[in-house]
Write a protein that binds this DNA or RNA. Structure first.
Lengths: 135, 135
DNA sequence: TTCGAATCAGACTAATTCAGTCTTATTAGA
DNA sequence: TCTAATAAGACTGAATTAGTCTGATTCGAA
């Protein structure tokens, strides 16, 4: 319960790798996979997600790879995690337009509002931590 | 990801029910189940867990049931959640005596320490919220 | 003293989620 | 044109979670 997914962990690790490599060229998925002992396919997928969210960019072909799009001081880890995990909430209903679809208790729920307060505090924990702090 | 379990939700709801009922006798599992639309067996199990953790006490037999052992101002919701969920960590290794058993990366992990800081902050969010705040 | 309403406990099942693999396509440089 | 890289999605197996079922125990009241 309340666990981060492997995808989220791998995304943080990959971002860290690229940040440490700094501006010295691209990091390939294979390179990160081998250095940090992460399954190749998973790192590759996670890196693609980072590109889609404009946290990193990629170059195809030989000598290609991935690199951060911004400085580590400017990348909040909540953005890294959200790039790979859409559901980042303590309950299923905890999003805009939450409805009975998400939870049969939606209309009679006794703890929705207090949990929303807690959700906001947890969001802040991640929002206020930047990539540079995990290097 | 990062979701609370149903057991945790039900525990908070059950605690809230008992708190609202205040000192006017016992609340039976059936009563809570019907009022808050929670499966009977699950509420019953959750209530038993609360008793084991000294958050509530029980009375068997007819007219028996459950009641809070302390005032809602004195019950932190982290205790309610921990009563029903032992794993309350963002990673498997995030506990005393974490080892290679928990995660094959344990000895080479690049993000363990920063995640421990985040874990502590999340713990504080729950520790600093009391039952009285979710009534 | 017997019956019913309640707690207590644990095994079991079904559903969902998650981690990881496999396969194939695409791209660009040597 | 060959090779090393990204890109993308389907598939599988494992693990977790939600919920059910069954039965035992306890106490009070009729």
């Amino acid at each position: 319960m309340l666990k981060l997914s492997k995808k989220a962990e791998y995304a943080l690790m990959a971002a860290k790798y690229m940040a440490l490599k700094n501006s010295s060229g691209y990091s390939s998925a294979k390179e990160i996979s081998e250095n940090y002992q992460i399954p190749y396919q998973l790192v590759a997928k996670v890196l693609q997600n980072l590109v889609k969210s404009d946290i990193a960019f990629s170059a195809k072909g030989m000598n290609g790879g991935f690199a951060l799009a911004k400085k580590p001081e400017l990348i909040s880890i909540i953005d890294i995690i959200k790039a790979v995990e859409s559901k980042f909430k303590i309950t299923d209903c905890m999003h805009e337009n939450g409805s009975e679809q998400d939870c049969s208790h939606f209309n009679c729920c006794k703890i929705k509002d207090p949990l929303a307060v807690i959700q906001k505090k947890i969001d802040n924990v991640f929002t206020d931590t930047y990539l540079v702090q995990i290097l």
